[in-house]
């Protein structure tokens, strides 16, 4: 295992029932300093994976190493270095924000001043004695993030942290995640079912669908993959002839047009030249680069 790995899972399988495999051969790799976006539609296995990482589910098959150690061999030592937010906020409704943090302050060995610090980071320093049960969902979510930050963790695991946040809250979350990563050196693993929500902040991406990892790598690799997946929409005076001329691009016939894959904008020029040289009139030449959202949909749809 490389020294840089903060999380590494090998061949992780998990089934809630015999009939349905929730996770299949998950090999997650998050390195120190990454902001790792763990993406997938609802029900794809993201939360199950995160619950396994945090010991909330017993491992059935495969292994998990966090900070280079097997989780069960040093559970409390590992958890001391992790801040987490799993699914909906976990807060005591009858207590106020400070009291909620005080419950865990000594458990994590955090100082009293750290409470004011994380409340300020989460923008909740003015909530006073207001009980958490009367907080909005967004405030609860921010307090949960404050709780996750309480131990000043080396690894922050956030499961759908943008849930319940308004657009401003999401922008603030982005800024906060980047700042924590940049200034505190925190490694962050964050799940989401909306790619656009996280693509502006993550350095690495893992895409999971129906319990299988479809893609894992740096965001730049995903962008390269995205370019490879770009399609060109084409309509000419003779689409049948165009299909023969461009057969190496493996065109597909649509109703009024052709669709073909291209790898880089230079190929669009090549396609245009070829059609011209065969005296075909080009009525439409529309390079359609997949944005990441479309790619995400394509990747997941491909596996339905």
């Amino acid at each position: 295992m490389s020294d840089n790995s903060v999380i590494r899972t090998s061949g992780l399988d998990y089934n809630y029932s015999k009939e349905f495999r929730t996770l299949q051969d998950i090999n997650l790799k998050v390195e120190k300093g990454n902001i790792y976006g763990f993406l997938g539609p609802n029900g794809s296995g993201k939360t199950t994976t995160l619950r396994l990482l945090l010991g909330l589910l017993e491992i059935q098959k495969g292994s998990i190493e966090i900070f280079g150690q097997h989780f069960q061999s040093n559970r409390t030592g590992i958890l001391k270095r992790i801040g987490s937010l799993i699914e909906i906020p976990s807060l005591y409704g009858h207590l106020n924000a400070k009291e909620n943090l005080e419950v865990y302050r000594a458990v994590y060995g955090a100082s009293k001043s750290r409470i004011a610090e994380v409340l300020r980071i989460a923008g909740l320093e003015d909530t006073g004695r207001k009980a958490v049960k009367s907080f909005s969902l967004g405030m609860k979510q921010r307090l949960s993030i404050a709780l996750a930050l309480l131990p000043n963790p080396e690894l922050l695991i956030l499961d759908e942290p943008a849930n319940g946040l308004d657009p401003n809250g999401i922008i603030e979350l982005r800024a906060m995640v980047k700042k924590l990563n940049r200034e505190e050196g925190m490694t962050i693993l964050m799940s989401s079912h909306i790619l656009s929500e996280v693509e502006k902040m993550v350095s690495h991406v893992g895409i999971i669908f129906k319990g299988k990892m479809l893609f894992q790598g740096a965001l730049t690799e995903l962008h390269n993959f995205q370019q490879k997946q770009s399609t060109l929409l084409l309509h000419t005076s003779d689409n049948e002839a165009a299909m023969n001329i461009l057969h190496e691009y493996q065109p597909e016939r649509l109703e009024e047009a052709l669709s073909l894959s291209f790898d880089g904008i230079h190929q669009v020029a090549d396609i245009n030249r070829r059609l011209h040289s065969h005296d075909l009139d080009v009525y439409m030449l529309h390079p359609k680069e997949n944005d990441l959202e479309q790619l995400f949909i394509d990747l997941t749809n491909k596996h339905i």
Partner: peptide
């Protein structure tokens, strides 16, 4: 108190034996 507030997961992911 834990069930109602959905806080078991926070308790069990805190570094306590």
């Amino acid at each position: 108190i834990e069930y109602r507030n959905n806080t078991w997961k926070q308790v069990l992911t805190s570094p306590q034996p």
